[in-house]
Amino acid sequence: MKCELKVHEFETYKAYYCGLCKALKHEYTLIASSLVSYDCAFLYLLADSLGSETNIPEPCACLLHPLEKRLQIVTDAAQYPAAVNVLLAYYKMKDDVEDGQKFKAAAAPFLRPAFKKASSLYPETAKAVSMMQRALSGIQEKKSGNVDEPSGAFGVMLGKIFERLDADKWEDLYGLGYNLGRWLYIIDAADDLIKDEKSGNYNVFLNKYGESGSPEIGKEAEFNLYFSLARAAEAYGRLPVRKNKEILDNIFYLGLKQKTQFVLKGEIC
């Protein structure tokens, strides 16, 4: 995503990232730097861009980057993305532990209280995340080779996360989240083909086509990735973006497209 952003735009993106990190520290007393996800930073960037409050990036004193001059944007719009970040991180941890990475359980004592707080603040979102997790493990168990099933389940979750950003625009936000979620699921599946083939992990394309070398995989992935992005971009175009329009335009019309091209060509972005 960052490849297509201009330097000052990427600085702004990072300032949202650091603002989110700050919110996680403040709201959940998490030493969060290892938990902050770029996806949730994006959610924060979008959430703040739909609001009309002006914000001024302030210097960020970060223990991890003591020599770098970094900026952070701290607004109330960070509350919800921070909670989403906690919810996703918690389920990711549970998932990793179940997949045999037992050492990941070390984070549980820190994450569990944060998870409880985030769930009580946003019970519907917590439910959406846990429902998606359950739906995905069912799909995985029956070894589905239908790309619509897992990517759709992931899309519904992200749709439900996004739709809360603005009650008046919930349909477009849902559409944006749904299609972005579909894209994310499929781009990861396409990116992990060879890894999953070696490890024997579930991969929807391997279940359908048997081996990572099948040329059909590229075709199916290409259609679904670009179609999902087209729908996401359409929904984005209908949103009342009040700031950061250039950054968001670049992400939706260039960055995601470029990432797709790279993954389809098997290169690393």
């Binding site: 790309v147 619509d148 759709g152 899309g155 299609n179 199916e220 259609f223």
Partner: peptide, 12 residues
């Protein structure tokens, strides 16, 4: 129906 449900591969 699949297109509107967001199941694009099946729709195709």
């Amino acid at each position: 129906v699949l297109l509107r449900r967001g199941w694009y591969e099946g729709a195709r």
